[in-house]
Every structure is written in structure tokens, then in C-alpha cells.
Amino acid sequence: MAWMPPLHRLLSPITADTGAMIEQVQLKPLYYAAQKDALARAGDDEDDQFFELAKLATGLSEKELDQLKRPDYVTIAHYVHEMSTRPSAFFLGEPEESSSHEQVKLLLPLDAAGRTLTELPLEMPALRATKVMKKLTTNKERAEFITAHCTGLMIPDLAHLTVPDWTQLQERIDDFLNQPAAFFRNATST
């Protein structure tokens, strides 16, 4: 069964921009590119960042969000925090150790190169790829380059990953970049 974001029943209903009553909000997954854009719009203020991400996660307008009672907003902010910081294994209910270093199970399917992917194969980067990566200007450019290299995706495809999938990939790629060979031998020998 595919993962579905939770439905949040509002403690206190709000009025939609259309005048209708909103009693529940179907939460949505956060996607890598949309989150990156929302955070850029919000600037450095953490409250503004959560508000921008809450708009993405709920589909509510600013006026509708402003009507939320604090307990409802806290619930949504908690969801946004988990979506922004937890790997896909958390949402799929799998222990992180259950994923191999060669495959990452995706939270939601990814359409790339005419295929629908539910898992991404991972390949350890060659030294020449890390040399190219280090020459890039920003951390974001370096992360996108090495992620595309290790997954075989094109950089534009990364935009369509959910944030938890991105987080899961970054954890694996960090291992590739920083762990010695023995780490991988120990992880695969049981």
C-alpha cells in the first residue's frame, strides 16, 4: 500500500476564501524544489519559514491559515517539521537500517526519463565525481550534483523528489562520501 499523508480534522473549523466551511485539511507531501523555493521566499525567520511550508503542506491560502487556532497550526507545524527533517523510511514505517546502500525505497513514485520509479538505485561516487563536486560554488549545487551522479537522475528530476526521499538519499550519500570501506562490508555481512 502506498504512503498517504494524514487527514487533519480541525479542532476549530475555518472559513474558506470561497465562504465555505473547512472542517478538515488533507495534508500534502513536501517536494524538494517547492520547499527550496518556499524557504527562499520566507528568508531566515523560522516562523516565516514554517508558515510558507504550512501553505504548501495544506494548500490553504494565507488568509485561511491565519484563521487557524493555535492547536491546529501546531499540529500542521509538527507535520511540516517531520516532513522537512525525517527520511522516507520514517514515514514508510521501516527501520532505516532495513534499506540497503544500493537501493532507496521512495515515499512516493517519481516520474523520470519516461519511467515511474518506486526505488532509486544508488551507486557510490567515483573520486573524479567528488573532485567535480568540490569545485561547485554552493552546498546546494554540490548536493544536487552528487545526488544526481549517485542515483543516475538528471538534476531537474531531483525537484520532484519528496523532501523525505531527498533526506534519505542525503544520509546514504553522506555515508558514501565519509565512511571507510569497512563500514559497507559490515553493513552487508550478516
Rank of each mutant, 00 (worst) to 15 (best):
A129S: 09
C150L: 10
Q67L: 10
A57W: 06
A126W: 05
F91K: 08
T75Q: 14
F145M: 09
M133D: 06
E141D: 15
D66I: 00
L127N: 07
D48G: 06
S84Y: 00
I76C: 00
Q35A: 14
S88C: 06
P125D: 11
P71H: 10
R128I: 07
P125M: 13
G59T: 02
T162K: 06
A34E: 15
Q67Y: 03
T137S: 12
P95I: 04
Q49I: 03
K55F: 01
S98M: 12
D45G: 03
T138I: 06
L68E: 02
L158I: 01
R128C: 03
Q26E: 12
L68M: 11
A34C: 04
S84L: 07
D44M: 09
K131E: 14
D66P: 00
A38M: 06
L27I: 01
F145D: 08
L56H: 05
Y31Q: 05
L161H: 02
F90K: 10
P121I: 08
A129L: 10
T58G: 05
D72G: 05
T75I: 04
S100L: 09
P156W: 10
L117E: 01
K140H: 09
L39G: 10
V132I: 13
Q67T: 02
K134A: 14
K36M: 07
T75N: 13
A148R: 05
N139Y: 03
K134E: 13
N139E: 13
L117C: 06
E64R: 02
D72A: 08
T147E: 06
E144I: 00
T138V: 05
V104C: 10
F145A: 06
H160Y: 07
L30E: 00
A38C: 03
F51D: 11
K28N: 09
F91W: 10
F51Y: 08
T137H: 12
D44G: 14
D44N: 14
A143K: 12
E141Q: 15
E23K: 12
R115E: 15
K69C: 02
Y31N: 05
T138D: 07
T116K: 13
V74Y: 07
M154I: 02
C150W: 04
L117P: 01
S98W: 06
M154R: 15
A57V: 08
G43P: 03
L110K: 03
R142Q: 13
P109Q: 05
E123N: 11
C150F: 04
M124K: 14
P121E: 14
T58I: 03
N139Q: 12
